[in-house]
């Protein structure tokens, strides 16, 4: 299983893996059109951990959808590894806000799904799923259906499923939002470890600024809808970092505060719009 692979791959940082070129996306609703993102240009290198933050509805998820090829930009272009994204991008694995588990399959069945699709032999599949279930702390719930799980457990199942099929790029849309603090930290540590040791590229959407700083190599801050890039900050933390001890790191505190100051005004804007 590839997650257990030891050592690091050579980092071949040749150009960018994902690039957005003047990307705009407008959704046509029945009575009006809504601009989700506007004129976004962004380059993401292979192996990079990029976090997208910004107020709700600023089109962060839209960018993930376009990277996965679920829909195309209204104008502009999205490239993945040098090729234009025009359909399902099989190099990416997507974990949406909604966990999208298969309700008719139990935890084991859900995590096995991508492995079955790939045609992995039953024995190997079984071992791998067992390992993943242990990893995300779902031992004892193997035979539970999604309807029998709590929100956090469903998220963990979805994460295990994503890790099971081990895509090159992970698109994560608030994957840890429903978890308790302890488990969230554990999952963050695990995600960071995986991203480093396997040189995964990660696009991570969150509302949690602490999480954004803790995990990212770069944090991209968006304005309220239509989402435009407001600022891109390099995270002043080493790539190998101790997540549990970050609270005492002045560089971490400073950047979190900086993001807060940047986001707060836009938060008020969206609230004004919503009411």
């Amino acid at each position: 299983m590839s997650i257990q692979m030891s050592g690091t791959k050579p980092k071949a940082v040749t150009g960018s893996l994902i690039s957005f070129e003047n990307v705009s996306k407008t959704f046509e609703l029945a009575d009006r059109s809504v601009a989700a993102v506007e004129n976004v240009s962004l380059n993401i290198k292979r192996g990079e951990f990029v976090v997208l933050v910004g107020p709700s509805g600023c089109g962060k998820s839209t960018l993930l959808n376009m990277t996965a090829g679920l829909f195309l930009p209204t104008s502009g272009r999205v490239f993945y590894d040098g090729t234009l994204v025009t359909g399902y991008n099989l190099k990416t694995g997507y974990m949406t806000q909604n966990d999208h588990l298969l309700p008719w399959r139990d935890v084991v069945g859900n995590i096995s799904t991508p492995l079955e699709i790939r045609g992995m032999a039953r024995g190997e599949r079984h071992d791998r799923v067992a390992h993943l279930i242990e990893l995300v702390g779902l031992v004892g719930f193997e035979k539970s259906y999604p309807s029998q799980l709590s929100g956090g457990m469903r998220k963990r199942t979805a994460l295990a499923r994503l890790l099971a099929y081990d895509p090159e790029t992970l698109l994560l849309d608030e994957p840890f939002a429903a978890l308790d603090a302890q488990l969230r930290l554990n999952m963050q540590i695990e995600l960071l470890r995986i991203s480093r040791s396997l040189n995964k590229t990660i696009l991570f959407v969150t509302h949690d600024l602490d999480e954004a700083v803790a995990l990212s190599d770069r944090a991209v801050v968006f304005t309220a809808r239509p989402g435009r890039i407001r600022q891109i900050s390099d995270t002043p933390l080493p790539r190998q970092r101790d997540l549990a001890g970050l609270r005492r790191d002045p560089a971490y505190t400073r950047m979190t505060a900086e993001l807060w100051d940047l986001i707060m005004p836009t938060l008020n804007e969206t609230r004004g719009e919503a009411s």
Partner: peptide, 29 residues
């Protein structure tokens, strides 16, 4: 059948028959 579930399976590299068996039929049953 949920479009999202189908998309998720295609992203995993599934073909149409696999989507049919794992998503469409169980959902329609």
């Amino acid at each position: 059948v949920s479009r999202e579930l189908i998309s998720i399976l295609y992203l995993m590299g599934a073909n149409e028959m696999q989507v049919l068996r794992r998503v469409v039929l169980p959902s329609a049953i």
